[in-house]
Structure formats: C-alpha cells, structure tokens
Computed example of a mutant assay.
Amino acid sequence: MQLMVVDDSSLVRERLANLLCGIAGVQAVLQADSGKQALDLLRDDTSGAVRFIVLDIEMPGENGLQLLQRIKSSRRDICIAMFTQHANSQHRARSLDGGADFFFDKSSDIDRLETIVRQLAAQPH
C-alpha cells in the first residue's frame, strides 16, 4: 500500500513518513507540501497505488478542505484522514461532511492514526 502525507510543514511530513513507512504492508509514503503537489502526485499515480492520504487542513493556497473535495470527486477509492492542529468541532464536521474518512488531532491522535494505517495495510487490496 502507498500513502501520501500532505502538509506544509516539512517536520510534520518527515515525522509521519518515518513513522508510517515502518508499518508492515506500507511500500511507500509520498510527501507533498501543497495541494498542487498532491494533485500532481495523484495524476502520476496511474496504477492507483495511493490508497491513504493524511491531509492537513491549514495550508497556503488551496486548503485541506478544498483539496479533500477535489480528491474525493475523482478518486473515491482513496481513504483520507484529516490531520490538524485545528481540531475543533467545526473543522471536524466540515471534514467529515466533505468526505473525510477520519479526523485526527495532531497533538493527541498520532497513535490512533498509526493504528488505522496498520489496519488498512493489513487488508488485501
């Protein structure tokens, strides 16, 4: 399974990539620092290998909520987890209403995110 981490913070992207690439069944963790780069990587993913995206809400340019809707409109097969430090009820509701499969708080939900990725990576594609 391939994953993608989309966050404008290189520290967050690298930390998550290092954590998630050590999970059995995860072949690669792509990284994007913007919505544009994420969409470019998805366009290049002609085999549909990317199955899970960790997506930040607050990014310069196109925010994560806008990107969520664009990805879900063309790739309903991708599981998306919003991963944000702005984990208020309004962002949670907008994310889940917009098609997010999961919503995690960066400050307290890293273990939950890792558990979900382990479960997905263990499933046959």
Results as ranks from 00 to 15, higher is better:
Met1Lys: 05
Gln2Glu: 12
Gln2Asn: 12
Gln2Cys: 00
Leu3Ser: 04
Met4Arg: 04
Met4Ser: 03
Val5Leu: 09
Asp7Glu: 02
Asp8Thr: 07
Ser9Thr: 01
Ser9Asn: 07
Ser10Asn: 13
Ser10Val: 05
Leu11Asp: 15
Val12Arg: 02
Val12Tyr: 00
Arg13Phe: 03
Glu14Asn: 09
Glu14Ala: 12
Arg15Tyr: 09
Ala17Leu: 06
Asn18Phe: 12
Asn18Thr: 04
Leu19Arg: 14
Leu19His: 06
Leu20Val: 15
Cys21Lys: 13
Cys21Ala: 11
Ala24Asn: 13
Gly25Phe: 05
Gly25Glu: 12
Gly25Asn: 15
Val29Pro: 02
Val29Asp: 12
Val29Ala: 04
Gln31Thr: 15
Ala32Arg: 04
Ala32Cys: 02
Asp33Gly: 11
Ser34Gln: 14
Gly35Tyr: 06
Gly35Lys: 06
Lys36Thr: 12
Leu39Lys: 12
Leu39Ser: 10
Leu39Glu: 12
Asp40Trp: 14
Asp40Glu: 14
Asp40Phe: 13
Asp40Gly: 14
Leu42Asp: 03
Leu42Ala: 06
Asp44Ser: 15
Ser47Trp: 11
Ser47Glu: 14
Ser47Cys: 04
Gly48Glu: 05
Gly48Lys: 12
Ala49Phe: 05
Ala49Cys: 12
Ala49Gln: 06
Ala49Glu: 09
Val50Trp: 05
Arg51Tyr: 10
Arg51Ile: 07
Ile53Arg: 00
Ile53Gly: 01
Leu55Gln: 10
Ile57Asn: 00
Glu58Ser: 07
Glu58Asn: 15
Pro60Ser: 15
Glu62Val: 13
Glu62Ser: 13
Glu62His: 01
Asn63Tyr: 08
Asn63Ile: 08
Leu65Lys: 13
Gln66Leu: 12
Gln66Pro: 04
Leu67Gln: 10
Leu68Phe: 08
Arg70Val: 02
Ile71Lys: 08
Ile71Cys: 00
Lys72Cys: 00
Ser74Leu: 11
Ser74Gln: 15
Arg75Ala: 05
Arg76Trp: 05
Asp77Glu: 07
Ile78Glu: 08
Ile78Pro: 02
Cys79Gln: 09
Ile80Val: 15
Ala81Asp: 00
Ala81Thr: 01
Phe83Ser: 01
Phe83Gln: 04
Thr84Asn: 05
Gln85Asp: 10
His86Arg: 13
His86Gly: 04
Ala87Leu: 03
Ser89Ile: 01
Gln90Asn: 08
Arg92Gly: 07
Ala93Leu: 09
Ser95Tyr: 03
Leu96Asn: 00
Leu96Lys: 02
Leu96Pro: 02
Asp97Arg: 12
Gly99Cys: 13
Gly99Ser: 01
Ala100Tyr: 04
Ala100Val: 11
Asp101Ala: 04
Asp101Met: 01
Asp101Trp: 05
Phe102Tyr: 14
Phe103Leu: 10
Phe104Cys: 11
Phe104Leu: 12
Phe104Thr: 08
Asp105Ile: 10
Lys106His: 02
Lys106Cys: 07
Ser108Tyr: 12
Ser108Asn: 15
Asp109Met: 06
Asp109Asn: 10
Asp109Phe: 06
Ile110Gln: 09
Leu113Gln: 03
Leu113Phe: 05
Glu114Gly: 12
Glu114Thr: 10
Glu114Asn: 04
Thr115Val: 00
Thr115Ser: 05
Ile116Phe: 06
Val117Gly: 03
Arg118Leu: 01
Leu120Ala: 00
Ala121Pro: 08
Gln123Asn: 08
Pro124Ser: 13
Pro124Glu: 15
His125Phe: 15
